[in-house]
Design a binder for these strands. Structure first.
Length: 113
DNA sequence: CCCGTGACTTCCG
DNA sequence: ACGGAAGCCACGG
């Protein structure tokens, strides 16, 4: 199986399921995976996912809605531009309507049909 | 094999 | 309420 690392694979899977115009946090994904303290590893997966090009890592920010990983993207404001392009309001590299567009996998991806 | 780093979060004092 | 330290997982040297 290609599942070298469940955490990595799962984090990428969740990030990939993020709907358009929505954002989430590392902790939310980590908590959904059952490891709230492993948020850093989620960010690692984002980096790898970004290299993979199949996961919208620009939709993933920290708990404060700040584009922490913007510096890891191409250029400097690419991440912000992508989010704004989706209708996300960002000010000073921070999502203004973060709570409004926050997408929680623990709630949205609830096994509850 | 051991140590350090990293796009974070939570707990303890 | 604020500040500092620990925790967790994976990868690189």
């Amino acid at each position: 199986m290609s599942q070298k690392t469940n955490f990595f694979k799962k984090a990428q899977a969740v990030a990939r399921q993020i709907p358009f115009g929505r954002v989430t946090s590392y902790g939310a994904i980590a908590h959904y995976l059952g490891a709230a303290k492993s948020a850093r590893t989620v960010g690692w997966a984002m980096k790898a996912s970004h290299l993979d090009g199949t996961v919208p890592a620009h939709r993933v920010v920290n708990s404060k809605g700040i584009l922490t990983g913007k510096h890891h993207f191409e250029g400097t404001n690419l991440m912000q531009q992508l989010l704004e392009n989706e209708g996300v309001i960002i000010e000073n590299f921070q999502i203004v309507n973060f709570q409004e567009i926050f997408w929680d996998p623990t709630i949205e991806l609830r096994k509850d049909s």
